[in-house]
Design a protein around this nucleic acid. Structure first.
Lengths: 416, 416
DNA sequence: TAGCCTAATTTTAAGTTGTGAACTAAGCCG
DNA sequence: CGGCTTAGTTCACAACTTAAAATTAGGCTA
């Protein structure tokens, strides 16, 4: 209700954005096809595309011969129009990747952070240095950077100054922009919760493609989710929506690290699963060095050990109920199961998980939802972070670097 | 992403809609103020408003004197431009109300439906007859009807033909439009789930006013919720979103009428509460004739009976966890507690409910959410249903009766 | 009562934008 | 080379929004 006013200028922006997005996701396409897909007239397509070609945002990419007519000229987003960087600030290290506008990875780079926790004061310089190295590696000038996307653990408060709250690692209201303050990085900075960037990556390039309503469930050591409603990431009023891991599933149950009882995370997060397994083993530690290997051990042991099988079976039950809650509340058309632990569980147990979900979800909604595994690897957080500046480019149809956007030439000719 | 194309015509429609909505929700306003609030130029406001005045959609409503200048002419939506009817099809009867465009109730009307279940074949004629009676009562000609909104129990599938699925009352794919097929009702029909219409009423006129992200929790015999994201009702991919009542809260717990175990509804729905109370009393029935009176009995008994107090205390705990789940997942700025049982519980126990919620919700999100009681009475479903045609009017800026919208005069002048 | 003052509307003249129709370009076929 | 087919461009236009100029409509003053 009550959208904002719209001017004739907004029209152009919007149509430009529509064309550019179509080209990005479905390209290469000819002007003719663009007209068909967007519903715009050939004249407008020609006009707007001409403008974008002039701006070098779009380039021609070969011909498609037709049987007896003028061949179509294919168009695509110019991969070299600019570059983007995605940064994954994790609990144990920082991963960075450089892409061109076709999202081809040109360089990558990873650095550990000294345990036990990422110190905000260290992260800034690490990113700045990594950035320089990436650009150098790929031979891309800094002026070509459209923006840097950063995925961080914890809630990101998108305000005048972007702040990060991450109880788990002790970040409380850290202003990310300031971390980079004097490091000479001039490209626009986009900060977002890492689970949400991973979800966005999965939506753009992975198992979520094409869905308008979806939930990307992320199960790692902890549990989170990205909710996509009507094609866009749902953030809620203070951008902390989607905290699926801390919904109560077992009223009065196990204590979660958030302090509450019976959270989903305490049952299906890797930490929770392994803790339950350990107890089931009478307190004996799982003989593997890290969580990931321990979970693999548990999965492998299920074939021969009743204890392990029971723990897994229970886990599937909890997970099914948790997914059913997502289905009942959000009624998505697709659930994507991701995160390293989610992938490990899903690879072996997806049919069981589906069955458990069906037992808890309402029939109608369940029947219209598919449950799939994620398709991107562990660098999805960085890829998703890199999509942030690209998204800004696509939705505005304009270069995100041009902050105080210059009026179109001529508009100010008398204004001195 | 990838909105649709937009033409110059869309611009006008949208600005017309913006102005009309502003006038509806914040009116009366002068043209000058309209310009300020919408951001539109005075010229456009004058132009568009002039058109709407010509269409009799908007009328002048007095002057506001100014200190020494031309007085402002107040404008408002013309209450007599048309009328709307809201129908509440409940499990035990049909309630109907007639409103003018200022949402002033002009007539009301209620009829019971023979138990145990509303027979679809009876509902159609009942509505048709009630409609005639309402119009007669208020002296409104049928031609003045902008539309009839119908709130029904169960999921409403909004497609080519609108179908209702309501397991609880045995409606499975009933085509509502056909019910009225040959009864001579010509006004456009809008059908929506009753919980969602009630939620919309609360958002427009009740405790939800002004919130962009809210959840209206409805607790009656069963439990449901309306989720408002970014100002509009969230429906999900097949319009069955918001089934809060059937989310698992107590893994493996009580059997719910949906067949699953441990649903929230089985614990905090009136039926579930009373069943738990009955068991706590060693199986003795609650000495009152209907659910509503029984719940009142329980609430009153809490002061002197430990059994009752315990049942209530547990209920508050479950409810708090359930609300916390809403907060963690949707991150709304407001939770509105409604439904007859919700109101009964909330009136006495709201502070306890807030406390229980805080114990389960994540701190950051909880701190940014207020939990309030609903403000509309039991006819909110009908009021909300009546807003459906009004909403259609406001968002399109055009008369919802004009289905195959006539091209503006002249556009076809050569087309014979 | 005539004239002046102020602030709200309306009118006017630009300046944008998308569209349909007419027109041009480019390749194929015979 | 001329006809044919399909893709892309150009152009006159209608529908819009806007800034600026002109017009109203009360209230006040002399």
């Amino acid at each position: 209700m009550e959208s904002k006013r719209a001017t004739v200028r907004d029209l152009r922006r919007r149509n430009r954005s529509t064309l550019l997005s179509t080209l990005f996701f479905e390209g290469p396409l000819s002007r003719y096809e663009l007209g068909q897909r967007t519903g715009l007239s050939a004249a407008t397509v020609s006009n707007v595309v001409g403008e974008m070609v002039e701006d070098r945002l779009v380039v021609e990419a070969g011909l498609v011969e037709s049987d007896g007519g003028r061949p179509r000229v294919l168009l695509r987003v110019n991969p070299d129009y600019g570059h983007v960087v995605g940064v994954d600030v994790g609990e144990t290290g920082v991963t960075m990747e450089l892409f061109d506008l076709a999202m081809t990875r040109l360089a990558a780079h990873a650095r550990p952070l000294p345990p036990p926790r990422p110190d905000p004061a260290l992260v800034g310089p690490l990113i700045a240095a990594g950035l320089a190295e990436l650009l150098d590696q790929a031979g891309v000038p800094e002026s070509s950077l459209l923006g840097v996307g950063v995925g961080v653990p914890g809630t990101v408060e998108q305000g005048e100054t972007v702040r990060v709250h991450a109880q788990a690692i002790g970040w409380d209201g850290i202003a990310v922009a300031e971390l980079l303050g004097d490091s000479g990085v001039t490209a626009p900075l986009f900060v977002e919760n890492g689970a949400k960037t991973q979800g966005q990556a999965e939506m753009w390039f992975g198992a979520g493609r094409g869905a308008r309503h979806a939930v990307i469930a992320l199960i790692g050591s902890g549990v989170g989710a990205t909710v996509i409603t009507d094609g866009t990431t749902y953030r809620g009023s203070t951008s902390s929506a989607g905290e699926w891991g801390h919904t109560s599933l077992v009223f009065g149950g196990r204590t979660c690290r958030c302090g509450a009882l019976g959270c989903l995370e305490a049952y299906v997060g890797a930490e929770g699963i392994l803790d339950r397994y350990r107890r089931a083993r009478g307190g004996r530690a799982v003989p593997r060095p890290d969580e990931q290997a321990q979970l693999d051990f548990l999965l492998a042991a299920a074939d021969r050990s009743a204890t392990a099988a029971t723990v897994l079976e229970e886990t599937v039950g909890y997970l099914g109920a948790g997914i059913a809650n997502l289905i009942n509340l959000f009624n998505p058309e697709r659930i994507v199961l991701g995160g390293w632990a989610g992938l490990a569980l899903g690879t072996r147990l997806l049919p069981d998980i589906r069955r458990a979900t069906a037992a808890h979800a309402l029939r109608h909604a369940y029947d219209h939802t598919s449950i799939d595994l994620c398709r991107l690897g562990p660098d999805a957080v960085a890829v998703g972070a890199a999509t942030l500046p690209v998204e800004a480019l696509l939705t505005s149809g304009a270069d995100p670097r041009a902050k105080p956007r210059p009026r179109p030439e001529g508009a100010l000719q008398n204004a001195q």
